[in-house]
Simulated scan of single mutants.
Amino acid sequence: MYGDFQIEEITGLGGVKALSPEWDNLFDLCVEATPFQSPRWLVPWCAHLGAGDPYVIALRINGALAGIAPFMLKGDELVFMGTGVSDYLDILMKPGLERAGAFAVIERLAARQELWRRCDLQELKPGSALLSTGLPSGIRSRIMEREPCLYLELPPTIEEFAAMHRVNRRAGSARARARLERSGFLTIETADKARLEGFIDSFFTLHAKRWASLGLPGVLKGPEIMSFHTEAARGLLGSGMLRLYRMRYMGSDMAALYCLFRGKRVYAYLSGFDPALSKLSPGTHILKHAAEDSIRSGARVLDFLRGGEGYKYAWRPKEERNLNMVLERA
């Protein structure tokens, strides 16, 4: 017992998968949690990218799951599940129990120091309860800033968004986009269950083309990362959190944009486009379409996620920084 919590430790991929239905129900209650904390994202990560041993601390009250701290042990280092491919990470606690849950998790880690030498907890939002919880004796922490996370506040209407866009010179020409759309040769579609596999293939191909034109491999190189995204996309689509867009011009794939959607926030995760059509600003056009589609769906924030790339600043976004919390034995 840790306060009002009963603590359960789950290890192994089989145990993580068995916990998934309860985890999914808890995630539904946590309206501020991001898609990167969903089992539909993290369980595929464990299966395809998690080079280590899953170690999950489950917090229960009267037997019901009230919180979960999903970790991966890599040798003697403990990290969050999803590290590397996820832009926001944290423990998941039933609303109202965040501070108590964070303290219980840290206490449990302190009691299990034989498992780890260092905990490297990346991509915590500034408001994470882990950052402000007290530390038991024998544990010290270091907190460091990470790269910027940029986001754009969306207006209630597409007309207001269009007015904002007109003064954004680097965001492309509204007239050019209108000409493309009137031509009848430009189409933008959103993946559904029947066509998901084809959309994913287009996304992988366009991402690889765009980065190959720069002499770089991109971040989707290798069968493991592709298998992860394929499995995660199926689960995320089934829960309504995936928005995978494909833009075609004259029957050929032009651009793809992989977005995650939850609550009032849409996350522009990864994209790709055909560099042979770069003069038509495909990346800008498909991002504008995603923003407009999100406004129609009630979103109020377009999150560009990690990284300070120039095209993001062209939209005049606001900026926050995630934090990295490192726990070590004192």
Rank of each mutant, 00 (worst) to 15 (best):
L277S: 09
S271T: 11
M254P: 02
R265H: 06
G251Q: 06
F273K: 04
G235C: 12
M241A: 14
S294W: 11
F261Y: 13
M241N: 08
G235I: 14
E309Y: 09
L270C: 14
S239V: 14
F261W: 11
A291Y: 05
F273M: 09
R262D: 00
I286S: 00
R316H: 10
R296K: 13
G308S: 11
G240E: 06
G235S: 08
L280I: 14
G298D: 10
L237W: 05
L287R: 01
R262T: 03
L237S: 01
G251H: 05
L237M: 04
R265N: 04
G235T: 12
A314M: 06
K288Y: 13
L277P: 03
L236V: 12
Y249N: 02
D303P: 01
L280Y: 02
A299R: 05
E292Y: 06
F261I: 15
L260V: 15
E309M: 07
T284W: 01
R306C: 15
G308H: 06
Y267D: 01
F261G: 08
D293C: 13
Y311T: 03
F273I: 11
R262M: 11
Y313D: 04
S281H: 05
M247T: 00
G251D: 07
R246Y: 00
R316V: 12
K288I: 15
A291I: 15
P282W: 04
G263Q: 05
L237T: 02
I295E: 02
G272S: 10
D303V: 05
L277A: 11
A256D: 02
S271R: 03
K312W: 07
A299K: 06
A291R: 06
R246M: 01
L242D: 00
D253P: 12
G298W: 03
L257Y: 03
S297D: 11
C259K: 07
M250C: 13
M241W: 07
S297I: 03
R300A: 11
G298V: 09
S294D: 05
R234Y: 11
L302R: 03
K264H: 15
R243I: 08
A291W: 09
H289R: 09
R265K: 15
G307Y: 00
D253Y: 03
G251Y: 07
L305A: 08
Y249Q: 05
L287I: 09
K264A: 11
L302I: 08
K279G: 14
R248C: 08
S239D: 09
M247K: 00
C259M: 12
S294E: 09
G310E: 03
Y245Q: 00
M241V: 13
K312E: 07
G298M: 09
L277N: 05
A276R: 15
R248W: 00
L270N: 14
P282Q: 01
P317T: 04
Y249M: 08
P317F: 09
K288W: 14
R234H: 14
S297A: 15
L270V: 15
G272I: 13
L257E: 00
I286L: 03
K312Q: 06
A256M: 07
L270R: 13
V301T: 07
